[in-house]
Design a protein around this nucleic acid. Structure first.
Lengths: 207, 207
DNA sequence: TTCAAATGGTACTTACCGGTAACACCGCAA
DNA sequence: TTGCGGTGTTACCGGTAAGTACCATTTGAA
C-alpha cells in the first residue's frame, strides 16, 4: 500500500506539462487569452504557477504551445479522415464540411487559432508564427484534397471553402446559430457542386 | 482675443463625449478591448477618467457605444452607395465587394464588431445586443439588395457573401494578405455570377 | 543510501486596471 | 452677483495580473 502510494485523481497521473496545456486550452477557449491568468490555469491544472513557468517561460509561450497543440489535433483529424476514406477525396471533403457545423453545435466559440489571431495585437507575439503555420498547413491540405479530387483550380476552391468556414465560425459568435452560418453547408456544397460541374466540362474538353 | 479664448488643438472643440468615442474606437482597434485601459483612453482623448465615467457608466458601456457608432458608420456607407447608384443594386453589390478588400488593405485588423464578438466572452455583456443588431441589419440590407437585383433565393446569396467577407477579414489576420483572403473578390464575383446564371434560368422558366 | 532532478507551496514584487470620492475650475444664464 | 452644470485634477481603493525568490517535498535512478 505504502509503496503503491495511491494518487488522487487519475488525471494527475499525466505529467504536469500535459495537464497545463489541456487546462489552459479549455480556459483560454472559455474566457479568452487575456481573460484568464496563469495562476488560475495552474490551479485548475492541479499544479502551481512555478511548475508552469518552469515548462513555459512565459504566458505568451504557453499560448503558443496551446495553439500548436490545437494545430496538431486538427492535423490528426485530417489523418483520421484520410484513413477512413483512403483515396476518396470527395468523401473527405464532405466529411470536412459536415465537421465544421457539428463542431460549432457542440461549442459555438469558433476556432481557437482564429480567435487568438484576433485577440493578439502584438505583431511579434510568439503565437503569431504558430497561427500562420497552422492555418497555412490547413489551407494546403484542403487544396491537396481538392486537387486529388480532380477539380480545376483546386486552390481557388480550397480558398473559397476556407473563407466560408472561417466566416461561419465568426458569424456563429456574432448573431448565433440562426445567422448566415446556418446556411454554411448549403453554400459550401453548392460551391463544390459548381466547381465539380466546371471541372467536368474541363475534363470533357481535355479528353 | 481674450473673449475668443483660442482653444488648443482643434480636436478639443468637439465635445468630450465624441472625442472619447473616437479615441476609444481607435485604441480598441489597435490594442483590443482588453488591451487598453480607460485611463489611457481618457488621456488620449484629451480629457480624464472622471468625465469618461460621467458619460459612460462603465468601460463595457463605452465598448457598446463604440460598436454602436461603428454600426452607424457602416449604415452610412450603405446610404452613400444607395445615393451614388440609385436603383442599381448590382452596382451597389460590386461596390460592396470592392470595399471589403480596400478597407482590408488600409488596415488589416478586420471588423471591429466581429473582433469584439470574439473578444467578449461574457454572454450578458452590454455590447452583445449591439453586435447582434448591427450584424443582423447588415445581413438584411445585403439581402434586400440581392432581392432588388432579382436574384432567386437572395437570402442564400446574401448569407454566402456575408460568410465570405467575414472569413476574409479573419484570414487576413491569421495568414496575412497572401492567404485565402487574397481570392475574396474572385470567389465573391464567381458566386454572384453563378447565382445570376441560375436566376436567369429561373426567370426564363417563369416567363 | 545517496544524490539530483522535478515538483509543490508560499510569499513577494511590481505594475496595472476599473471605479469612486472629494474638490477646484470655468462658462453661462438668470 | 449668484448659482449651476459640465469639466478637470488628484488621490485613493480593492482587486488582479505576470513573473520571481526561496525552500520543502517527492521521485527515481545510480
Amino acid at each position: 500500500m505504502s509503496k503503491e502510494g495511491g494518487k488522487e485523481g487519475g488525471l494527475s497521473r499525466t505529467p504536469p506539462r500535459d495537464r497545463i496545456i489541456e487546462t489552459a486550452r479549455d480556459l483560454f477557449r472559455k474566457h479568452g487569452l487575456r481573460g484568464v491568468g496563469v495562476d488560475a490555469i495552474a490551479e485548475a491544472a492541479g499544479t502551481n504557477k512555478m511548475t508552469l513557468y518552469r515548462h513555459f517561460g512565459s504566458k505568451d509561450d504557453l499560448i503558443a504551445a496551446c495553439l500548436s497543440e490545437a494545430g496538431k489535433e486538427a492535423a490528426q483529424e485530417w489523418d483520421e479522415w484520410d484513413a477512413e476514406f483512403p483515396n476518396a477525396p470527395m468523401n473527405q471533403l464532405h466529411e470536412w464540411i459536415g465537421c465544421a457545423v457539428s463542431c460549432a453545435i457542440e461549442d459555438p466559440r469558433g476556432c481557437d487559432i482564429a480567435n487568438a489571431a484576433i485577440e493578439i495585437t502584438e505583431p511579434d507575439h510568439p503565437a503569431r508564427k504558430v497561427i500562420a503555420q497552422v492555418k497555412s498547413a490547413h489551407r494546403d491540405r484542403l487544396a491537396r484534397i481538392c486537387r486529388d479530387a480532380g477539380f480545376t483550380d483546386p486552390e481557388l476552391l480550397a480558398d473559397a471553402l476556407t473563407l466560408l468556414v472561417e466566416g461561419a465560425r465568426v458569424s456563429w459568435q456574432t448573431v448565433g446559430p440562426q445567422g448566415p452560418g446556418s446556411r454554411f453547408v448549403d453554400v459550401a456544397e453548392a460551391i463544390v457542386a459548381a466547381f465539380a460541374e466546371r471541372s467536368k466540362v474541363a475534363a470533357d474538353v481535355a479528353g
